[in-house]
Amino acid sequence: ILVSTLLAILIRRWHQKTHHMMLISDALGLAVFTVIGVTKALDFGASAIVAVMMGVLTGCGGGAIRDLLSGEVPLVLKKEVYAFAAMAGGALFVASESYIGVNMATLLSAGLVLLLRLLALYKKLSLPRFDLPPISR
């Protein structure tokens, strides 16, 4: 019983540390794949709005699939600054690419997504939630 208890305590601490690192890695992946999605959409001649939406879908899609396969509610469906961060980064890329070049726009956009996501994690920021009255029948 003592060995099992000790193992449970150690595994719990290890899981808490790795969970934190997973969220940071997820934020980095969100930033990278958002920019990749936007650039690919623009390369194929998509409009600015479509390119931003493709960036959001590309960035958020991988995390959603990962969460679904692991049996968790996807972060994008929680009250998190997740899709908003991807949308802001994608919009920044589209707006700044022609002025500062692809490389600098990539760095700035990915940096914005990463910054917004990490701020949301560390400062416990979330988007407002609107509670609608139930639909009466």
Rank of each mutant, 00 (worst) to 15 (best):
L112W: 04
F33P: 02
V94E: 10
P74G: 06
A120R: 07
L112P: 09
L42N: 04
T106Q: 08
A46W: 12
A51S: 15
L121T: 11
A86I: 07
L68H: 05
T39M: 08
G89H: 11
E72L: 09
C60V: 15
F93P: 01
G71W: 03
G55L: 13
A31Q: 02
T58V: 12
C60M: 13
G71S: 09
G37L: 12
L119T: 01
R117W: 10
A41G: 05
G71H: 08
A88L: 15
I65F: 12
E80N: 15
G61P: 01
A46N: 04
G37K: 07
V113T: 13
T34G: 05
A86Q: 06
I49T: 11
S47G: 15
L57D: 01
V102H: 14
K123M: 11
M104F: 12
G101P: 07
E72S: 09
A48C: 01
P74Q: 08
T39K: 09
R117Y: 11
Y122Q: 09
S96T: 13
A88E: 14
S98Y: 03
C60R: 00
F93Y: 15
G62T: 04
A41I: 07
A64K: 01
L118D: 04
V56K: 05
T58W: 05
A110Y: 13
V52W: 12
V35P: 05
T39V: 08
V50M: 11
V76S: 10
V76E: 03
S109D: 03
K78C: 11
V81A: 07
F44I: 04
E72Q: 14
V32I: 14
V94H: 13
L57S: 11
